[in-house]
Write a protein that binds this DNA or RNA. Structure first.
Lengths: 174, 174
DNA sequence: GCCAATGTAAAACGTTCGTTTTACACTGCA
DNA sequence: TGCAGTGTAAAACGAACGTTTTACATTGGC
């Protein structure tokens, strides 16, 4: 049994549900079913554990948005919130919780957001068959907005964003 | 000199910059220039202090979006991020940090987001001279998205959202 | 059969947490 | 003159923090 994977999965769940700072190491060891000695041998520190969680989450999220149309981006987000729930963006949340002062976390967040932006530009380019950084920025804002509005508005926020993106994309096509 | 106001202002700055959990009471008392005894006499607890911070921030933010057009909403947000910086939504952040388990905070956040949604519906209705809950939801998503995308994309995110809202509003007008 | 690796359980590290308490100084109004 | 109100400074509270250490059990390959 891969201890690191079990630990990372348990940590992601706890960090996401209760926050990074509010989650103590004892809760993590208990949830992962391992001693604190083993935990520290595997991940080194709490911050490095969070960095692993974020890297793994980035991998999973980016795999879901390997698509070729703007509309499919929002369909993927609908799936994502259905599976993962609506607690906002864990990357921005952990960055804000630490004030950007924890290097491992800040770097994982920056890497994810850069890749996220790049991917959106690629999808927009594939959809329009030309680059359109302005539309890409708008799609990024709509995805980010759907993610955070869904916290209190529910899945309706994602559908609203999807419809808005459809209109903006259609308008950009001609 | 009003101690409560000074305390609330100092607390807002620290909570916003470093996070709620990461900010200790000693930092708060030092920044507010008062003893911990006085602090507790005034606000009761750390959670109640955060609730005061959020209520005061809601008052200030809602005053800024007392406008009559959708475009003015985004102009107001541009001003807001210029003055307050781009660290995301303090309401959603504090709610996420506490996992929604701190009643005073959860209530302040819920009240703010309900009022925010209501205000957007009013502004959309005033702009179109008719109610349009679908456009209102899209505007809400764009505002939320601009706020959070601005954390890593800067003020460009707000301009992109503003332009998108302009297109959607114009389309809804006819 | 043994050594190295990998695991657990649990105590201890010193620090910091939010909060309360003790002891005292200043103010303004009766 | 005195007292109630409001403030400070600083110690103390027990609990929890992230991390390390001590002591021991289990494995698999040479």
């Amino acid at each position: 049994m891969d201890m690191t994977r079990k630990l990372t999965a348990a940590a992601e769940r706890l960090f996401d549900r209760h926050g990074y700072m509010a989650t103590g190491m004892d809760r993590l060891t208990e949830a992962a079913g391992m001693s604190s000695r083993t935990l520290y041998k595997h991940v080194g520190s709490k911050a490095q554990l969070m960095a692993r969680v974020l890297t793994e989450r980035d991998r999973r999220f980016m795999a879901r948005i390997e698509v070729r149309s703007v509309d499919a981006l929002f369909a993927a987000l609908e799936d994502w919130v259905r599976v993962e729930g609506t607690r906002g963006c864990l990357f921005l949340r952990s960055s804000a919780e630490t004030g950007g002062d924890t290097p491992e976390i800040a770097e994982a967040v920056a890497a994810h957001k850069a890749a996220f932006h790049r991917r959106i530009e690629e999808v927009v380019a594939a959809d329009l068959e030309r680059e359109d950084p302005v539309l890409a920025e708008q799609v990024l804002v709509l995805l980010e907005g759907a993610t955070h509005a869904a916290v209190y508005r529910g899945a309706d926020a994602v559908s609203a964003a999807r419809a808005a993106a459809g209109i903006l994309t259609e308008r950009a096509r001609t």
